[in-house]
Amino acid sequence: MRIAFSKMHGLGNDFVVLDAREHPLPPLTGDVVAALADRHTGIGCDQLVLIEPSKVADWRMRIFNSDGGEVEACGNATRAVGLLIGGEVSLETLGGTITARPDPKGIAVDMGEPRFGWDEIPLAYAMDTLRMPVGWPLDEQELSQPVAVNVGNPHAVFFVDDAYAIPLADIGPVIETDPIFPERVNVNIAAVTARDAITLRVWERGAGITRACGTGACATAVAAMRRGLVDREVTVNLPGGPLVIAWGPDNRITMTGPASVSYTGSFDWGDYA
């Protein structure tokens, strides 16, 4: 059974997109996802995205990290799916229904309202989410007092002087799997460079360091806005390129940036199942 796919990316955060809107696919297990995502023996991607029919939106979008685990939301993947489908489209996700539409700067995505309650992140117990009273040792210093934000999936945002001076590959998995985050967490290392600019690196739970993370950009921008560090519209500069994040008076986040099709192809399902 041959399955068509589209290889897409948003600022280098890359996806294998499977379109099951008209023809259902066999059950998509974590092992199949991990095999397809393997960059040496599979197609290779940060996330696998499945588009299916929905009863509550135009279409349903399911997102799987490269380790096979399903996650609630992915901003870059939403832009990719928006580009693939075309026009304005509503998408059901595990993190809620979101919309995507064409924009002169690429694809604009309404990411919904951020959540800040400790039980909405979720955290293991009640605490201040604007300045979490926790820290992790890092060489001769401590990475501490992150902002916790849920934008469809959980994020911890740390503000530092130099985002590239932090050994993210070492500290990222430690924080991701800390028991204080019962559903694990995405780790954001950010440096505010102007009232309208942030430099950001992200360790994504289940995927590791990626060139861009849409929900991470949203979470970091909102975290900086809550602390009064930036204005209500900001450019978040990731290794893969910039995303524009606006937090409107209606409490909804809009993320705008590019998405691209790298190539299309097909594979034999039996080679990965």
Rank of each mutant, 00 (worst) to 15 (best):
Pro179Asn: 11
Val151Thr: 15
Pro182Asn: 09
Val149Asn: 12
Leu168Lys: 08
Ile121Asp: 13
Pro146Phe: 02
Tyr125Arg: 15
Trp118His: 14
Ala190Val: 04
Pro137Asp: 11
Asp128His: 10
Trp136Ile: 00
Val185Leu: 05
Tyr164Asn: 15
Val174Lys: 07
Asn150Cys: 11
Thr129Lys: 10
Val151Trp: 11
Ala126Thr: 09
Ala124Phe: 09
Ala126Trp: 06
Ile171Ala: 01
Trp118Val: 14
Thr177Lys: 01
Ala156Asn: 09
Asp170Ile: 07
Asn188Ala: 05
Leu123Ile: 08
Gln141Ile: 07
Ile175Thr: 04
Val134Phe: 13
Ile189Tyr: 01
Arg184Ile: 00
Asn186Phe: 04
Met132Asp: 06
His155Lys: 07
Asp178Asn: 14
Val160Lys: 03
Ala163Asp: 14
Asp128Val: 09
Thr129Phe: 10
Ala165Thr: 12
Thr129Val: 09
Val187Met: 02
Ile180Phe: 11
Thr177Gly: 00
Ser144Leu: 06
Val185Glu: 04
Asn186Thr: 08
Gly135Asp: 03
Val160Pro: 08
Met127Ile: 10
Arg131Val: 12
Ala169Gln: 08
Asn186Ala: 06
Ala156Lys: 05
Arg131Cys: 14
Thr177Leu: 00
Pro167Asp: 05
Val160Ser: 04
Arg184Val: 00
Pro137Ser: 11
Asp119Ser: 14
Leu130Gly: 08
